[in-house]
């Protein structure tokens, strides 16, 4: 029964996603849906590290920007889409490998700090090396590719392209996480020493995870530059890394749906907030603090807990179950 319900939910979600342009209609909202999908790919990629490997990277916007800039600069130089995109992915994989070798000199805080510094290097190149990257002016991407002769110029067609990439990413992640390799990655997160003693090469497992994460980060970077048809140093800034980290954390780490929920929350909020106030960074910071203080395990697990808790409240005729009381999400800790 549970399995059937699950397939029904997945089927319904797929139908909803596949028909989205028809029931949404307005191309502004279709574009937001494309944004959500591309950032969901990015968040899923980062979640491999944050959630499953226990390695928090604050430099992923750097990898995202490397893919975007490589493709944009090659397109500007007159190369075709296929050549530019392939080169961008190869460069991003190489950069991920370099990031991995350097950052894996350490774990925990050290890993985070090194990735932050590496991300800043990319930002420094994008922003200051103006003769190469155009500095603050960024690089324009004049055309979108037409895979199999299908033009991606309008909003619905780009949405479908993003949807295909997103579904591919999601399927790969689902397989990756459930595979023996995914299990060993979780092992290195929880018990690195024991994994080592059992004969696993902890360093190599982490290295592969970082490169895998870098690959999907690069793909989402490519989607991003085709979506915006523009790339600027902004995409490599620490704020960008923090935003995607917020997607992972707010949705709940080490879940497949968490980063997607996080991407929806952050993208929608960013669009809504930006429409009314200029203070997106302030809101972003406040969300971080509120989440850390009240829902430290993320919104999806937090909401699940909230539902369970309310269920208990209902069952106990309005009296909260004693054991659950201290988990009350609204209560000041």
């Amino acid at each position: 029964m549970n399995g059937r319900l699950r397939y029904a939910t997945i089927g319904a979600a797929l139908v909803l996603l596949a028909t989205l342009p028809w029931w949404v209609g307005n191309s502004y909202y279709i574009n937001i849906a494309s944004q959500i999908l591309l950032f969901a790919v990015f968040a899923l990629a980062l979640n491999v590290l944050v959630g499953y490997a226990g390695l928090v990277s604050l430099g992923h916007a750097g990898l995202f920007a490397i893919a975007g800039y490589t493709a944009a600069l090659l397109l500007q130089a007159g190369y075709g889409h296929f050549a530019a995109d392939t080169a961008a992915i190869v460069v991003t994989l190489a950069a991920s490998a370099i990031f991995a070798v350097l950052a894996l000199r350490s774990t925990g805080i050290g890993f985070l700090m090194i990735t932050l510094a590496l991300g800043q290097i990319v930002w420094g190149i994008a922003y200051r090396w103006a003769s190469l990257t155009g500095g603050d002016n960024g690089v324009n991407v004049t055309t979108r590719p037409s895979p199999f002769g299908i033009s991606l110029a309008n909003a619905p067609s780009f949405y479908f392209a993003s949807l295909v990439v997103f579904l591919l990413a999601f399927a790969t992640m689902a397989v990756f996480v459930r595979s023996p390799f995914g299990a060993s990655l979780r092992g290195t997160r929880d018990q690195a020493r024991r994994m080592n003693a059992l004969g696993y090469n902890v360093w190599l497992i982490r290295f592969v995870a970082i490169v895998f994460s870098g690959f999907w980060t690069g793909i989402s970077g490519l989607l991003f530059i085709y979506y915006n048809q523009f790339v600027s140093p902004q995409v490599s800034a620490l704020t960008a890394s923090a935003e995607v980290l917020l997607m992972v954390i707010s949705g709940g780490t080490a879940t497949l749906l968490g980063p997607i929920a996080g991407a929806i929350i952050v993208v929608v909020m960013k669009n809504v907030v930006s429409a009314y106030v200029e203070r997106w960074n302030l809101v972003l910071g406040l969300i971080f603090i509120v989440i850390i203080t009240f829902m430290p395990d993320g919104l999806v697990p937090g909401t699940v807990r909230l539902c369970r808790w309310s269920w208990h409240v209902i069952r106990w005729n309005g009296k909260p179950a004693p054991a659950m009381e201290k988990h009350s999400p609204g209560a000041p800790p």
Binding site: G108, L246, N281, F288, I289, I292, P296
Partner: peptide
């Protein structure tokens, strides 16, 4: 570590 990072980063954005 992770909550500390997010908290300090959150404050950094707010201060900025």
């Amino acid at each position: 570590v992770l909550p500390q990072v997010l908290l300090t980063l959150g404050f950094a954005f707010i201060i900025a």
